[in-house]
Design a protein around this nucleic acid. Structure first.
Lengths: 335, 335
DNA sequence: TCCGCGGTGACAACCGTTTGCCATGTGTTG
DNA sequence: CAACACATGGCAAACGGTTGTCACCGCGGA
C-alpha cells in the first residue's frame, strides 16, 4: 500500500545498486549476449529484486522502435473483423508487440489521416480490407511498413483470402442444384473484395453459359439485408451469392418476414463464415474463410519485414484458400 | 515519392524556420493559450506547411502521459466483448486517446503481469470482466488508473450492467408461463457476473417459493453449450437461464441435435443479447445489456479521472439497466 | 517619471533508454 | 614473448519533446 507514489525505478537505480554503468544495465537487459554471463545474472537479479519495469516510451524514443503494431479496420462492429482481431492479437502477443486498434469508420480519409498521425508511434500496421485507392496505399506504405489483408496492390505485402476461387465452387453447387438465375448481391463499391467476388461470379457463370446479374451495391452492415432480399426477390432469381455473411444473414431475416422459404423458394450463399453463420435459421451455406489465420499470417509477414537483420526476400503475397461449406440455406428449387 | 527516407521534421526545425525558441513552438502546438495569437498562427502555419507530425513517444517521455488506454478482455473471441470494443473505441477516439487491446486468455496471472508490464505506456486501463481477486484488483488500481466493467470492488470506479435485476424479470416471465423447475446454467466460478446472476436467480425463485438449482460450472465458450444442454435435460427442468448468450446459443444447437423442441419442451433464456441472439433458431429470449454504452461510460469515467485539473469527485460507480427481451426461445410448457 | 504588473517568449534542465566509440583486460597465435 | 583479436564495460551523446524559471517588453497608475 505505502508503495503509492514512489518514483519508479530506472536503469540508473539498478546501475547504482550494482555498481556498473547504465549502459551495461541497458545491454544486460536488452542485448544479453553483449555482456558477460556473470554481470548479466547479477544485474538481472537486482532488476528483479527492485521490480524494475522498462519504460516503453523512453525505449521508443531512443531506439526508434515502439514494438507496437496497429490493426486498422473499417468498422470494429463487423464480425468479419472479429477473427482478424483475434488472429493478429495472438500473433502479436507471441512476437512481443502491443496491439493497437484503429477504426476508420469506413472512410478512406480517416484511414490515411489516422495512420499518418500515428505513424511515429507504430512499427507497422495491418490494413484489414483497406478502402484506399492503390496509389494512396503505396504512398502510405512508403511512410510506414504495411501489410494488407484482402487487398492486393503491387509493392505492398499482402494476405488475401481466395474467395473468388470459392465462388466458382459455390456457382458449381448452385448450378448442380438446378439453378439458372443466380444473382450477386453487391457490397460497397470501393471494396476490393467486392470487386473480386463479382468478377469471379461473372466468369463462373459464363462458364456455364449463364449471364451474370447483380443487385446493389448496398452499404455494409446487416441492415442492408432487407433491401438486398427485396431486390433479389424482384430480380426473379432463384439463388443468390451475397458479398458477405452479414448481408446473407440480414437477408435470411427479411425473407423469413416475407414468408419466403429458404432454400425451397430461394437459395442463399454467403461469404466468410462469420460467427453466427452456423446457427442461423436456416444455417448458412457459405465460403469458409480462414480469417484468423489470415490475421496471423499478416502479422508474421509484417514482423518478418521489421527485423533489419533478417532474410528479407520473403514471399510478399500470401493467398489463403476458401472452401464451400454447405449448410441448409441452399437446395434444389421446389416450386 | 522522393520523400522516402528523409528525416522527419521536429519542433526544432519549426523553431528554426520561424525564428522562435523550441519551447515556444511546443507551447504553440500543445498549449495554445500560452502564446500570443500572432505567433501561434505563424507557428501553426509553418508546422502545417512542413507537414509536422508530433512524436508520441517523445511526448510521453517528457510529459509522463501517453494518451493511450488499454482495454483488457479475457478473450477477444467472446462476442460479448465486441460491443465493448466498439464502445470504448468510439469514446477513446473522441477523447483523443489511442486504443490498445489486451487479451488475457482467461488468466488472472496474465492480467496482472501484462498490465504491470505495460503500465508505463498506458494512461489507464479498462478491465472487461476482470478475473482478478479483489485485493489484487485494488493493488493494481494503485499502480495505474483503472475502471472495471461488470465487476464491483470498493475503491475502483466501475460500470456494471444490472443483469441481476433483469434476472428477476426473466424468472417472472418463466413462472408466468407455468414453469416451476427452472435451472441456472453456471459459468466460470471466478466470474463476478456469474456469481451475481446466480445469486439473483436464487432470491427471485425464492420469492415464488421455488428452489434454485444449478448445473455447471462450465468453461466459457459456445462449446460448453453441449454439456450444458445435456445437464439441463438430465436435471428435469422445464426452463433454464444461462449465464450468457454464448452458452444459450450453444445449447440451442445441441437441443436441436437431440430433437428437443424449444420452447415446447424446454425454455431457454440467455444473458447479454450478443450478436446472433436475434437470428438464432429459435431467436433467443435474453436480457438485453447496453454493452456498448457500458464501454463508453467506462471510458468517460476513466478519462475524467485522468485530467488533473478536473472536478474529481465524480460518481465512481455507474449501474446500467437491462431489459428482458422476449423472443421465441421461451414459451409455455406443451407436453 | 518611476514602479509594478500581466503577458510573452527564451533558456535549459529534464524524461529513461539506446548506442557509437573507446579503453581496458584476457586469451590466442606465431 | 610480442603482437593482435576479441570480449567486456564505461562515457556521453543523442532521441524529441515538455515545463519550471526567468528576463524582457510595454503599459497604466501614482
Amino acid at each position: 500500500m505505502e508503495s503509492g507514489r514512489r518514483r519508479p525505478v530506472t536503469i540508473a537505480d539498478i546501475a547504482a545498486a550494482t555498481g556498473v554503468a547504465v549502459s551495461t544495465v541497458s545491454r544486460a537487459l536488452s542485448r544479453p549476449s553483449r555482456v558477460s554471463a556473470a554481470t548479466r545474472e547479477r544485474i538481472q537479479a537486482v532488476a528483479r529484486a527492485m521490480d524494475y519495469v522498462p519504460h516503453p516510451p523512453a525505449r521508443a524514443l531512443a531506439s526508434g522502435r515502439t514494438r507496437t503494431v496497429a490493426l486498422v479496420v473499417s468498422d470494429v462492429t463487423n464480425p468479419f473483423y472479429f477473427g482478424m482481431i483475434r488472429g493478429t492479437q495472438q500473433q502479436l502477443k507471441a512476437a512481443g508487440y502491443a496491439h493497437l486498434l484503429i477504426d476508420t469508420e469506413d472512410s478512406a480519409d480517416h484511414e490515411v489521416e489516422m495512420l499518418h498521425a500515428m505513424r511515429r508511434s507504430l512499427d507497422g500496421a495491418i490494413l484489414g480490407a483497406s478502402r484506399l485507392p492503390a496509389r494512396a496505399l503505396v504512398a502510405l506504405a512508403g511512410e510506414i511498413p504495411l501489410v494488407t489483408v484482402n487487398r492486393n496492390v503491387r509493392g505492398v505485402p499482402s494476405v488475401v483470402i481466395d474467395t473468388p476461387a470459392g465462388i466458382a465452387q459455390a456457382v458449381e453447387h448452385l448450378v448442380s442444384l438446378g439453378h439458372r438465375d443466380i444473382v450477386y448481391v453487391s457490397g460497397p463499391t470501393q471494396s476490393w473484395s467486392n470487386q473480386a467476388r463479382w468478377q469471379a461470379m461473372r466468369v463462373a457463370l459464363e462458364r456455364h453459359g449463364l449471364g451474370a446479374q447483380r443487385v446493389g451495391p448496398f452499404p455494409s452492415g446487416r441492415g442492408s439485408g432487407t433491401a438486398a432480399a427485396d431486390a433479389v426477390l424482384n430480380s426473379g432469381a432463384t439463388a443468390c451469392v451475397a458479398f458477405n455473411d452479414l448481408f446473407a444473414l440480414g437477408m435470411l431475416t427479411r425473407l423469413r418476414e416475407r414468408g419466403v422459404r429458404v432454400p425451397a423458394d430461394l437459395s442463399v450463399v454467403g461469404c466468410d463464415d462469420i460467427f453466427g453463420a452456423d446457427f442461423s435459421n436456416p444455417p448458412l451455406t457459405t465460403l469458409a474463410a480462414p480469417i484468423e489465420q489470415a490475421g496471423r499470417m499478416a502479422v508474421s509477414l509484417l514482423v518478418a519485414g521489421l527485423d533489419p537483420r533478417a532474410p528479407q526476400p520473403q514471399r510478399r503475397a500470401v493467398v489463403l484458400p476458401t472452401y464451400l461449406t454447405v449448410r441448409e440455406s441452399t437446395g434444389p428449387l421446389t416450386s
